[in-house]
């Protein structure tokens, strides 16, 4: 195996259903329902998914939701802002834990 991630492997996602079809069916039904037009538009959901894809650093998801965002009419400026939102939360999640650091350090320090 020369690479763990190959773009064409994304198309094999549904094969997970070969071993546990009922679980796969539940998952894919749920997945489809999540991304359907609702209170949020399908375009807005794709932008959220793109941000999350970056936060979890999933190459398959980044590929799929970059295409999905473009096909739902988002532009690069909007997509870039979505990635910054993910980045801000991810970075912020690290930084906000400094509260713990400061609390513990305060307790231990004179």
């Amino acid at each position: 195996m020369d690479s763990y991630y190959k773009p064409e492997d994304l198309g094999k996602f549904a094969e997970i259903g070969e071993e546990a079809p009922e679980l796969a069916e539940k998952f894919f039904d749920y997945y489809g329902a999540v991304f359907a037009e609702g209170e949020l538009t399908a375009r807005e959901k794709a932008l959220i998914a793109l941000g999350v894809a970056h936060a979890v650093q999933c190459p398959y998801c980044i590929d799929a939701y970059t295409q999905s965002c473009l096909e739902k009419g988002s532009n690069m400026a909007e997509m870039t802002e979505a990635v910054h939102v993910a980045n801000a939360i991810r970075g912020g999640a690290a930084l906000v834990h400094s509260v713990q650091m400061r609390k513990i350090a305060d307790k231990l320090s004179m």
């Binding site: 037009e37 538009t41 399908a42 375009r43 295409q67 473009l70 096909e71 739902k72 009419g73």
Partner: peptide, 16 residues
């Protein structure tokens, strides 16, 4: 579309 991708749903795109 400005590239090698399919166009958005027409009514959603029109709203935007």
């Amino acid at each position: 579309p400005a590239g090698a991708f399919l166009p958005p749903d027409q009514s959603a795109a029109e709203r935007k």
